[in-house]
Simulated scan of single mutants.
Amino acid sequence: MAQTLRESLTTKAVTISHSESLELVSRMLGVADWNTLSAMLHAERRDASVPAAQLKMTTAFYPAVPLRDLVPFPNTTYPLFVGRESTVQALNQAFESGREVVLAIQREAAVDNPRFSDVYEIATLAQLLELEPLADGTFRVLTRGLRRVALRSFAAEAAAYRAEVVDVTEAAARDARDLIRSIYQRFQDYTAAHGILVPDIWLFFDQTRDPGQIADVVATRMKLPVGDKYTLLATLDPVKRLEQIEALLDLSQRPISVNYAATRRQALHHADRRRHRYATLEHLLLALIEDAEASAVMRACDADLGGLRQGLEQYLDNELKHTVTETESAEPTAAFKRVDQRAALYAQEVGYAAVTGANALVALFAETRSPAARLLAEHGVSRGRADKAIARGVG
C-alpha cells in the first residue's frame, strides 16, 4: 500500500520517502504509527521459520546490501565486492551515518533488482570497516557481522536499498561441551580434506565455549550451497545450529552413486589385474574415463579420452612395475583415500544428493604432484574448466 501511494503521488509531482508513506498508510488505517502497525501485522501473520518469542517489536531502518552468493554470519569479517549502483549508494549512506548496514541474502542470484520477496527474512547487521575503489569501477568493502536481524521491509529508496529490521534474540545456550569437542575433531578432518587454511580457528576454539559463536565461525568456513548456509543462519538455537553443523560435517551421510561405486571397484580391478600392491590415482583416473558423469565432464573440456587412456596405461604398465606383488588385492593409496573423501565434500558443496565420478574428478586436481593430475592438464582438463562444465549441468 505504501509503494502504491508513493507511485500515485509521484504522478502528481509529489515526492515522499518510503518511510513517510508507511506512516501515512498507518494513519489511514487508524493506527498511530508504522511501528505499531508492523507489530500488529507481525503478530497476526508470523513466519514459522522465526520463533515468535524471540522477535522484538522495536524496528529500525538501515541502508541495505543484497548479496547474491554469500551468507554472512555474526562474529566474522568478510570482504564484499559490489558494483550495483543501488548497493554503492547504500554503502555511501552507511559510511555517512553509523557505518552499519543490513546484509540481505538473495533467494536467487540471477535477480538483478531484488525486492522484499526476493530476499530471505533473516539477515545480518554488519559494521563497515573500510571501502576501497577498484580499477574496474567496483568497490571492495570490508565488513564485520554484528548480529542477526529479521527483515520487515526491503526496497530501493532514492536510488539506494533500505531495510527495516527487528532484532532477533537467540535461545539460551545450553551445555554443549561434548558436541563442541566432536565438532572440533570433525572440523580438523574437514579442513584437511578440503585444503582449507584456518590458522586462527583452533586458538578460537580454545578461547571460547559459546556454542553460538563457534557454530557461526565454523559455518563461515564450510563450503556449502547458499540454501544450507542460510538454514544455519536462520537457526536461532545455538545448540541446534551446532547439531546441524555436525551432521553436515559427517561425510558418511552423503551416499555414493551406483555409477561411482562401480568406478571405484573398477579402479581396484585395474590394480589387481596388474598385480600392483597399491591402487593409485592413475588407476582411479583410468576407471573415471569409463564413468558416465566424469567422462562427460572430460569431454566437455575437449579431452581426447583415447589419448588419455593410452597415457595412463603406459604409465601403469611401465612406471609401476616395482609395485608388483603376489598379494590378492590392492590397497588404495593415501592420495586415493584423500580424493575419495574430498569428492564427498565437493558433492556436499554443489548440493549433489550422492557422490559421483564428476566429484571425484574435481577432487583429483588437488593432488598436483600426481601423474594423473599432470596427464589431465596435458589433455586440457583443468579444475576451472571442469567446474564450469559442472555448473552448466554436465555430468
Rank of each mutant, 00 (worst) to 15 (best):
R6A: 02
K12P: 01
V14S: 08
E20A: 00
E23W: 11
M28I: 05
A39Y: 04
A39N: 11
L41Q: 04
H42Q: 15
R46G: 05
S49R: 14
V50C: 06
P51K: 12
A53K: 00
L55C: 09
L55D: 07
L55P: 06
K56H: 12
F61D: 07
Y62E: 10
P66D: 10
D69M: 08
V71E: 09
T76V: 04
P79A: 13
L80T: 01
F81W: 03
F81L: 03
V82P: 02
E85C: 15
S86I: 09
A90M: 03
L91Q: 06
Q93A: 12
E96V: 10
S97T: 12
G98V: 14
R99M: 06
A104Y: 01
R115L: 03
F116I: 10
Y120S: 08
Y120P: 02
I122T: 04
L125W: 09
L134A: 15
A135E: 12
D136P: 02
G137N: 05
R147L: 05
R147N: 03
R148N: 01
V149S: 07
L151I: 11
V166T: 12
V168G: 05
D175L: 07
L179F: 01
I180Q: 06
I183M: 10
I183L: 10
D189W: 06
T191A: 06
A193L: 08
W202M: 07
L203G: 00
F204C: 05
D210W: 02
P211H: 06
Q213R: 13
A219V: 00
P225S: 14
T231S: 14
A234F: 08
R241H: 07
Q244N: 06
L251P: 11
S257G: 01
N259A: 13
L268S: 07
L268T: 11
A271M: 08
D272R: 14
R274D: 10
L285N: 07
I289L: 07
D291Y: 09
A294S: 13
A294R: 11
C301Q: 14
D304M: 12
L312P: 00
N318Q: 10
K321G: 03
H322Q: 12
E326C: 10
P332H: 05
A334Q: 12
F336L: 14
F336W: 06
R338C: 12
D340A: 02
R342L: 07
A344C: 04
L345E: 10
Y346A: 11
A347D: 01
G357F: 00
N359S: 10
L361A: 15
L364R: 13
F365T: 11
F365E: 05
E367L: 06
A372H: 14
A372P: 09
A372S: 14
A373W: 13
L375M: 06
L376K: 11
E378D: 09
H379T: 13
V381Q: 01
K388W: 15
G393S: 00
